[in-house]
């Protein structure tokens, strides 16, 4: 059974252009999507590729114009499923400031459980566990206003974890963070996936954030244009570039070397991998070919 199953999902927005003419913008143009429970899935795409719109569908914030999307076996288009879906699938947004509701960290984390009517004692346990899971226990009684961007984002994640969801959707959670904050948030996401076995759907345009994913979907113009393991996706550097996406530096270097005539395998993701590859080449007596 797939946790998320989408069949020909289409979403249209009504918009007005410069001449005040009504027009329809197709944000998602027929997507088929399958995500297994417990997977770490990354959705890649440049701005305007429809990836955020897709994310909002997974949480029933938006409904498909046509096609069907099932989350945990529930059709998102049906009104009575809305709250059940949101209970099982949490969502973290881009701007950490705009998703924090309370004035104290622990109350912020408790907000979700309070909404779904968890008894007080259980809330305490969940809040403590969630803060522990994101490594923010020390800031329990602090005001969220004084925290760094990465810390705020971890609090937002803790707020979702405390609701005990099966799946967390993160819509560009690192876009507004500095490198330290990004690292913190990514580590938190990975450990949630590995230790708590939460299904993670990470939406991003940073290539290096998808390396640990089990599966990568690349979106362009409202469609899924590539999918597979990170290795599979990154082995086609040309195609990725045609969608306006960059590849990690190592992958780029390996690709360039291969273009120059080095017999290097495709889809190199880590520096160590390229090192090994080059060392093996050197030992096999490979000589640098004359470049044209």
């Amino acid at each position: 059974m797939h946790f998320i199953k989408g069949r020909n999902v289409i979403h249209d927005f009504a918009d007005t252009d410069e001449n005040e003419q009504e027009r329809v913008v197709r944000a998602i143009a027929g997507i088929d999507l399958d995500v297994k429970e417990g997977d770490f899935v990354a959705i890649l795409g440049h701005n305007g590729s429809g990836k955020s719109t897709l994310a909002r569908h997974l949480n029933a914030l938006l409904k498909p114009t046509s096609g069907t999307l099932w989350v945990d076996g529930m059709n998102t288009a049906e009104e009575e499923n809305k709250w059940k879906i949101r209970k099982g699938t949490g969502m973290v947004f881009q701007n950490p400031d705009n998703q924090i509701i309370a004035n104290v960290v622990e109350e912020e984390v408790a907000f979700g459980p309070e909404n779904i009517g968890v008894p007080t004692e259980e809330i305490w346990k969940r809040v403590e566990h969630a803060l522990e899971a994101v490594g923010m226990m020390a800031y329990r009684y602090h005001s969220p206003n004084r925290l760094s961007g990465g810390q705020k984002q971890r609090i937002a994640i803790a707020g979702i974890v405390a609701m005990r969801p099966k799946c967390i959707v993160l819509d560009e959670p690192t876009a507004m963070l500095d490198p330290t904050g990004r690292r913190e948030v990514l580590q938190t996401i990975r450990s949630l996936n590995q230790q708590e076995h939460v299904t993670v759907i990470l939406i991003t345009h940073h290539m290096d954030e998808v390396l640990y994913a089990d599966q990568v979907f690349v979106m362009d113009d409202g469609k899924i244009v590539m999918q597979g393991t990170p290795k599979e996706v990154f082995s086609d550097v040309e195609q990725l570039k045609s969608y306006g996406l960059d590849v990690p530096q190592v992958t780029e270097l390996a690709y360039e070397l291969e273009q120059c005539g080095f017999p290097i395998k495709k889809g190199i993701l880590r520096i160590e991998e390229l090192e090994e590859e080059l060392a093996a080449l050197y030992q096999s007596g490979f000589r640098i070919p004359k470049s044209k």
Partner: peptide
């Protein structure tokens, strides 16, 4: 949006 995704009703 954030409040709704966290089941605020």
């Amino acid at each position: 949006n954030a409040m709704e995704t966290r089941c605020y009703q």
